[in-house]
Design a protein around this nucleic acid. Structure first.
Length: 307
DNA sequence: AGCGAGCCCTGCGCGC
DNA sequence: TGCGCGCAGGGCTCGC
């Protein structure tokens, strides 16, 4: 469950269950799910077993669980990226294993007792890793879920997401004005603004009535503001509905689906009438993926030339 | 700097 | 019923 709302649903579901819990056991069933971990699976298991979990933090599509008792004062965290098809599920001890289970943790919580935390991932684009926490560049809290200004080293290059109170709107507008690229490319660039993927990029652009390939440097401050406002609106609405689920793949920690797929205006709606103007929505190949949009409402805007 | 291509993968739904 | 194809929410690296 990839984009910000889906990852936030997972974070919020994990937070009460894992904060204060101790990892009693770790079993790695699929080595490739540790692609982002620097050591072998034995190292991963040995370093996690017996450790306490301090919370659940998210920036963009990255999730991490800060760990207690880090060696030599170095702060460490268990970093999770769901990739295209990853899930983190909380299950009763003894529940049957999912066929796509890659890594499983036994957790012991002082109040809630024993629970299992399962990392399930069909395509293995997702991964887990132990990583060092490093200070944030701006000294502000790294993401949602913790006040600590510490971010996993492998997440440090990821920009803040638009729901982060420390996200700089003016910094984002300035970066857009400086870049020579298309607006959807910019929205999908996790180093510029994080958390947005193909679904919410298309939904935001539809809401803002912008063509996906409109150049960022001629967008102008007012239209950039409109776009950012629509991005936030779409993300918040999707979060309110538990994220977007097209099938059983994208679920919360209890395995339940979100409902935002019923609210999609553009993504996956090719051939259907545009909810605004009634003309058929189209799908166009873009960046090895697809863009879904209304070719009437979202016409390429020709920037006004100075007289 | 920015971009396209390639790569990492499995499983599903569809048309034949 | 079975097979092959196209498709899928992401991100990293490389060469131009």
């Amino acid at each position: 469950m990839p984009e910000l709302p889906e990852v936030e649903v997972v974070r919020a579901g994990l937070e009460p269950a894992v904060t204060g819990a101790t990892i009693s056991s770790v079993t790695v069933l699929e080595q490739r799910s540790l692609r982002r971990h620097s050591g072998p699976s034995e190292d991963f298991v040995a370093r996690l077993t017996g450790r306490g979990i301090l919370g659940a933090v998210r920036r963009g599509k990255f999730l991490w669980l800060p760990l207690a008792d880090s060696p030599a004062g170095e702060s460490e965290a268990l970093v999770v990226h769901l990739g295209m098809s990853g899930q983190v599920l909380l299950r009763a001890v003894g529940a049957p294993n999912d066929g796509l289970l890659r890594i499983t943790f036994g957790l012991e919580h002082p109040q809630h007792g024993a629970v299992r935390m399962d990392f399930v991932d069909q395509r293995i684009f997702g991964s887990m890793a132990i990583d060092d926490l490093v200070p944030t560049a701006d000294g502000l809290p790294a993401g949602l879920g913790s006040d600590a200004a510490l971010v996993p080293a492998q997440v440090a290059h990821i920009a803040r997401d638009p729901l982060d109170p420390a996200f700089s709107d003016s910094g984002f507008f300035a970066a857009l004005a400086k870049r020579r690229t298309g607006i959807k490319r910019a929205l999908l660039d996790q180093g510029l603004i994080s958390g947005i993927g193909n679904i919410y990029a298309d939904e935001s652009l539809w809401a803002a009535r912008m063509h996906f390939d409109e150049p960022t440097n001629t967008l102008g401050r007012a239209r950039a503001k409109t776009l950012l406002a629509e991005v936030r609106l779409v993300l918040v609405r999707a979060l309110g509905e538990g994220g977007t689920s097209f099938d059983a793949q994208y679920v919360n920690v209890n395995g339940a689906s979100g409902y935002f797929s019923h609210s999609l205006n553009a993504y996956g709606q090719q051939g259907k009438p545009c909810p605004r103007c009634g003309r058929p929505l189209v799908r166009e190949s873009f960046m090895n993926r697809n863009s879904h949009f209304c070719s009437f409402c979202q016409r390429m805007r020709v920037p006004a030339t100075s007289p």
